[in-house]
Nucleic acid binder design. Structure first.
Lengths: 187, 187
DNA sequence: CGTTTTATTCAGCACGGTTGAATATTGCCC
DNA sequence: GGGCAATATTCAACCGTGCTGAATAAAACG
């Protein structure tokens, strides 16, 4: 696209990382649909085709550049150790700290397109739910984990994805107080 | 597209309604992104251009063909009369019957449309929340109503808007059993 | 050194939403 | 009732998007 000579470049620049970084910024700012492959390529100073080459598809780019952030594996891990009594509070705290950090108020609505939803869903379903059930143990572990995921999903939805003013305005401590009983009941 | 003579057709066929109906079916079956304007036009037996003409845009079509179903006002009203003990169950039942009816089993769609989200949010915020707080009464009525809306929002989100398989697969009775404790705790 | 592998640009395809022009029908007004 | 604007429709084309295959140049490896 831009007169950079064809063929492999000199040195070994980590172009893939550069693309991923540019993509991360743009995805957070404009959402999935609002970010074109060409725009990412331009921001990274490379040709559009490189994205397909390195990441296979726009989906792949999205996953590799953002999943680390949103569905950061192990982000909730330290909530899943310790006593059962404090579990609910630890989970809520983990959720609020994680999301309050990654989504700085303005850019929350950008996470509303369907591909983000899918990534998020997969995370809740195959990561959080099974881990929780594992941690809980017992006969109705799955049912209780399901209920808990429902409550946590509700928190994330009503506070971050489609923020209701009264819920988004709460401080983390208030969130704990408001959602705590429900989550404890679910577990 | 198909050799139908150009210009205005005979009689006054309600083509706009036909398009909306075809769109409703396809949107429910394939979701927003998976439904092309051309496909809707073909299903309705008209030219693609007509949908821009009648609805302005694909978004507009989406809104007009589906919004009526989701934001049905007063749908939860009869849950808000009666004793406090059965309130949680009545609310959950109202939600499941309402949404199970509008989205035929398998193909729950992802409502990622901005306008739909906003309408839904406004409904939860200014209808359900204040009504609930009113019904509950007492000093911390608002806090408890907020928590309840969070739980209900979680149910709707994880079962209908962005359906997690384990939750979407539950029967209404199971939903009551799983979400009941959390909602009762919130109230 | 020669060969294979890898990283890159370039040109272009296929598809999706939208638009402007052409055209036929209805509905209104005198 | 006849003329004329408004309306509803098709057709053809545009522009942006994600993606792909060919060409090419540097690196990696023997």
């Amino acid at each position: 696209m831009l007169n950079k000579t064809r063929g492999r470049p000199r040195g070994n620049p980590d172009t893939k990382a550069a693309i991923a970084e540019a993509a991360r910024v743009l995805f957070l700012r404009h959402g999935y649909k609002g970010t074109t492959v060409r725009a990412v390529a331009a921001a990274a100073g490379v040709d559009q085709a490189l994205i397909s080459y390195h990441f296979g598809s726009k989906q792949g780019l999205f996953g590799e550049s953002l999943n680390l952030l949103c569905a950061r594996p192990g982000a909730l891990d330290h909530a899943l150790v310790g006593d059962r009594a404090g579990l609910a509070d630890r989970l809520i705290t983990a959720v609020t700290t994680l999301w309050d950090a990654t989504a700085p108020t303005e850019n929350r609505m950008a996470l509303q397109d369907d591909d983000t939803m899918r990534a998020f869903r997969d995370y809740l379903e195959s990561e959080l739910l099974v881990r929780l059930a594992e941690f809980l143990g017992g006969p109705d572990a799955t049912a209780r984990a399901t209920a808990a995921v429902g409550v946590i999903g509700g928190l994330i939805f009503t506070r971050y994805l489609n923020p209701l003013r009264p819920i988004a305005a709460l401080t983390p401590a208030e969130v704990r107080r408001v959602f705590g009983p429900a989550l404890r009941a679910a577990l």
